[in-house]
Protein backbone atom coordinates (compact mmCIF):
# COMPACT_ATOMS: atom_id res chain seq x y z
CA UNK A 1 0.00 0.00 0.00
CA UNK A 2 1.33 3.34 -0.97
CA UNK A 3 -0.47 6.15 0.77
CA UNK A 4 2.27 8.69 0.28
CA UNK A 5 0.53 10.55 -2.52
CA UNK A 6 -2.76 10.43 -0.68
CA UNK A 7 -1.23 12.12 2.34
CA UNK A 8 -0.13 15.08 0.30
CA UNK A 9 -3.45 16.10 -1.14
CA UNK A 10 -6.97 16.91 -0.22
CA UNK A 11 -9.26 14.40 -1.78
CA UNK A 12 -12.28 16.23 -3.05
CA UNK A 13 -15.05 14.85 -5.13
CA UNK A 14 -16.78 17.50 -7.18
CA UNK A 15 -19.93 16.52 -8.98
CA UNK A 16 -18.77 12.97 -9.00
CA UNK A 17 -15.21 13.45 -10.18
CA UNK A 18 -12.68 12.33 -7.66
CA UNK A 19 -9.59 14.46 -7.51
CA UNK A 20 -6.66 12.32 -6.55
CA UNK A 21 -8.78 9.20 -6.58
CA UNK A 22 -6.14 6.85 -7.88
CA UNK A 23 -3.80 7.89 -5.16
CA UNK A 24 -6.04 7.42 -2.20
CA UNK A 25 -8.00 4.48 -3.43
CA UNK A 26 -4.83 2.47 -3.50
CA UNK A 27 -4.93 2.70 0.24
CA UNK A 28 -8.30 1.02 0.53
CA UNK A 29 -7.52 -2.29 -1.08
CA UNK A 30 -7.50 -5.17 1.36
CA UNK A 31 -4.04 -6.30 2.30
CA UNK A 32 -4.69 -9.93 1.51
CA UNK A 33 -5.05 -10.46 -2.19
CA UNK A 34 -5.99 -13.71 -3.80
CA UNK A 35 -3.26 -16.18 -4.28
CA UNK A 36 -5.09 -18.58 -6.57
CA UNK A 37 -2.41 -21.21 -6.20
CA UNK A 38 -3.01 -21.52 -2.48
CA UNK A 39 0.65 -20.96 -1.71
CA UNK A 40 1.43 -18.99 1.37
CA UNK A 41 2.44 -19.22 4.96
CA UNK A 42 5.46 -18.29 6.95
CA UNK A 43 8.63 -20.34 6.52
CA UNK A 44 9.28 -19.95 10.22
CA UNK A 45 6.44 -22.34 11.10
CA UNK A 46 6.53 -24.89 8.28
CA UNK A 47 9.24 -26.65 6.32
CA UNK A 48 9.24 -26.76 2.50
CA UNK A 49 8.27 -30.42 2.55
CA UNK A 50 5.26 -29.92 4.82
CA UNK A 51 2.75 -29.03 2.11
CA UNK A 52 3.34 -32.40 0.41
CA UNK A 53 3.13 -34.22 3.76
CA UNK A 54 -0.15 -32.46 4.67
CA UNK A 55 -1.47 -33.09 1.15
CA UNK A 56 -1.06 -36.84 1.71
CA UNK A 57 -2.73 -36.70 5.13
CA UNK A 58 -5.61 -34.74 3.57
CA UNK A 59 -5.84 -37.13 0.63
CA UNK A 60 -6.15 -40.03 3.07
CA UNK A 61 -9.03 -38.21 4.78
CA UNK A 62 -10.71 -37.13 1.49
CA UNK A 63 -9.40 -39.41 -1.28
CA UNK A 64 -9.92 -39.08 -5.00
CA UNK A 65 -12.96 -41.12 -6.04
CA UNK A 66 -15.10 -40.32 -9.05
CA UNK A 67 -14.29 -36.76 -8.04
CA UNK A 68 -10.88 -35.25 -7.20
CA UNK A 69 -9.42 -35.67 -3.72
CA UNK A 70 -7.90 -33.24 -1.24
CA UNK A 71 -4.47 -33.38 -2.84
CA UNK A 72 -5.78 -32.15 -6.17
CA UNK A 73 -7.48 -29.37 -4.21
CA UNK A 74 -4.11 -28.36 -2.70
CA UNK A 75 -5.44 -28.74 0.80
CA UNK A 76 -1.90 -29.11 2.24
CA UNK A 77 -1.00 -25.57 1.23
CA UNK A 78 -4.36 -24.33 2.50
CA UNK A 79 -3.73 -25.90 5.92
CA UNK A 80 -0.38 -24.12 6.13
CA UNK A 81 -1.98 -20.75 5.33
CA UNK A 82 -4.77 -21.28 7.82
CA UNK A 83 -2.57 -22.49 10.68
CA UNK A 84 -0.10 -19.67 10.05
CA UNK A 85 -2.60 -16.83 9.71
CA UNK A 86 -5.79 -17.90 11.44
CA UNK A 87 -4.78 -20.12 14.37
CA UNK A 88 -3.87 -18.67 17.75
CA UNK A 89 -0.35 -19.49 18.88
CA UNK A 90 -1.34 -22.26 21.30
CA UNK A 91 -3.24 -24.10 18.58
CA UNK A 92 -0.38 -23.63 16.12
CA UNK A 93 1.82 -25.44 18.62
CA UNK A 94 -0.60 -28.34 18.95
CA UNK A 95 -0.83 -28.62 15.17
CA UNK A 96 2.94 -28.52 14.57
CA UNK A 97 3.60 -30.96 17.40
CA UNK A 98 0.85 -33.15 15.95
CA UNK A 99 2.61 -33.36 12.60
CA UNK A 100 5.56 -34.91 14.46
CA UNK A 101 3.37 -37.20 16.53
CA UNK A 102 1.64 -38.49 13.41
CA UNK A 103 5.00 -39.28 11.84
CA UNK A 104 6.17 -41.08 15.00
CA UNK A 105 2.94 -43.06 15.12
CA UNK A 106 3.49 -44.12 11.52
CA UNK A 107 7.01 -45.39 12.24
CA UNK A 108 5.76 -47.18 15.32
CA UNK A 109 2.88 -48.86 13.51
CA UNK A 110 4.50 -49.92 10.22
CA UNK A 111 8.18 -49.08 10.60
CA UNK A 112 7.80 -46.63 7.74
CA UNK A 113 7.52 -42.89 7.57
CA UNK A 114 4.08 -41.62 6.54
CA UNK A 115 5.35 -40.49 3.14
CA UNK A 116 6.94 -43.89 2.48
CA UNK A 117 3.78 -45.74 3.48
CA UNK A 118 1.34 -46.94 0.86
CA UNK A 119 -2.28 -45.82 0.76
CA UNK A 120 -3.56 -48.78 2.81
CA UNK A 121 -0.95 -48.25 5.52
CA UNK A 122 -1.77 -44.53 5.65
CA UNK A 123 -5.44 -45.28 5.94
CA UNK A 124 -4.95 -47.87 8.68
CA UNK A 125 -2.85 -45.41 10.65
CA UNK A 126 -5.28 -42.51 10.30
CA UNK A 127 -8.25 -44.69 11.27
CA UNK A 128 -6.42 -45.33 14.56
CA UNK A 129 -5.55 -41.69 15.08
CA UNK A 130 -9.05 -40.55 14.13
CA UNK A 131 -10.45 -42.86 16.78
CA UNK A 132 -7.93 -41.57 19.32
CA UNK A 133 -8.92 -37.99 18.42
CA UNK A 134 -12.62 -38.76 18.72
CA UNK A 135 -12.17 -40.33 22.16
CA UNK A 136 -10.01 -37.42 23.28
CA UNK A 137 -12.52 -34.83 22.04
CA UNK A 138 -15.35 -36.61 23.84
CA UNK A 139 -13.55 -36.68 27.19
CA UNK A 140 -11.49 -33.48 27.15
CA UNK A 141 -12.15 -30.54 29.41
CA UNK A 142 -13.63 -27.50 27.72
CA UNK A 143 -10.47 -25.43 28.08
CA UNK A 144 -8.20 -28.19 26.75
CA UNK A 145 -7.01 -27.72 23.17
CA UNK A 146 -8.47 -29.74 20.32
CA UNK A 147 -6.69 -32.92 19.25
CA UNK A 148 -4.24 -32.21 16.45
CA UNK A 149 -5.95 -34.68 14.15
CA UNK A 150 -9.30 -33.01 14.71
CA UNK A 151 -7.64 -29.80 13.47
CA UNK A 152 -6.23 -31.58 10.42
CA UNK A 153 -9.56 -33.15 9.63
CA UNK A 154 -11.51 -29.92 10.06
CA UNK A 155 -9.07 -27.99 7.88
CA UNK A 156 -9.16 -30.73 5.26
CA UNK A 157 -12.95 -30.67 5.06
CA UNK A 158 -13.09 -26.88 5.10
CA UNK A 159 -10.32 -26.48 2.54
CA UNK A 160 -11.62 -29.21 0.26
CA UNK A 161 -15.24 -28.16 0.11
CA UNK A 162 -14.30 -24.52 -0.50
CA UNK A 163 -11.73 -25.46 -3.16
CA UNK A 164 -12.57 -25.36 -6.83
CA UNK A 165 -12.67 -29.14 -7.35
CA UNK A 166 -14.43 -29.71 -4.02
CA UNK A 167 -17.09 -27.07 -4.55
CA UNK A 168 -17.70 -27.57 -8.26
CA UNK A 169 -17.13 -31.32 -8.73
CA UNK A 170 -17.80 -33.02 -5.40
CA UNK A 171 -20.58 -30.53 -4.56
CA UNK A 172 -22.57 -28.11 -6.73
CA UNK A 173 -21.65 -24.47 -6.98
CA UNK A 174 -23.20 -21.56 -8.84
CA UNK A 175 -21.30 -18.33 -8.44
CA UNK A 176 -24.19 -16.07 -9.46
CA UNK A 177 -27.50 -17.91 -8.99
CA UNK A 178 -29.56 -15.05 -10.44
CA UNK A 179 -32.75 -16.13 -8.66
CA UNK A 180 -34.12 -17.94 -5.63
CA UNK A 181 -36.48 -20.87 -5.77
CA UNK A 182 -37.62 -22.20 -2.44
CA UNK A 183 -39.00 -25.54 -3.47
CA UNK A 184 -37.28 -27.41 -6.30
CA UNK A 185 -37.29 -31.21 -6.79
CA UNK A 186 -34.56 -33.23 -5.12
CA UNK A 187 -33.72 -36.87 -5.53
CA UNK A 188 -31.42 -38.98 -3.40
CA UNK A 189 -27.89 -38.76 -4.72
CA UNK A 190 -28.15 -35.15 -5.92
CA UNK A 191 -25.19 -33.24 -4.58
CA UNK A 192 -25.53 -30.48 -1.99
CA UNK A 193 -24.83 -26.83 -2.70
CA UNK A 194 -21.35 -25.68 -1.76
CA UNK A 195 -21.34 -22.68 0.62
Amino acid sequence: MNRRDALSRVALILGGTVIGANAFLEGCKPADKKTGDGQGGSPSLFADTDAAYLDEIAETIIPATDTPGAKAAKVGAFMIVMVTDCYPEAEQKVFLEGMKQLEEASRKKSGKSFMESDADQRKALLIDIDKEAKDYMASKKKEDPKHYFRMMKELTLLGYFTSEPGATQALRYVQVPGKYEGCVPYKKGDRAWAS
Binding site: D32, K33, K34, T35, G36, G38, G40, F78, V81, M82, D85, C86, Y87, P88, L158, G159, T162, S163, E164, A167, Y173, Q175, S195
Partner: peptide, 13 residues
Amino acid sequence: NPWELKHHNNITQ
Protein backbone atom coordinates in the same frame (compact mmCIF):
# COMPACT_ATOMS: atom_id res chain seq x y z
CA ASN B 1 -14.80 -17.51 -5.61
CA PRO B 2 -13.92 -18.78 -2.13
CA TRP B 3 -10.91 -20.68 -3.44
CA GLU B 4 -9.51 -17.53 -4.98
CA LEU B 5 -9.31 -15.87 -1.57
CA LYS B 6 -6.21 -16.62 0.44
CA HIS B 7 -8.17 -17.79 3.48
CA HIS B 8 -11.27 -18.96 1.59
CA ASN B 9 -13.14 -16.05 3.22
CA ASN B 10 -12.08 -16.79 6.79
CA ILE B 11 -10.64 -14.14 9.07
CA THR B 12 -7.13 -14.08 10.49
CA GLN B 13 -5.58 -13.55 13.90
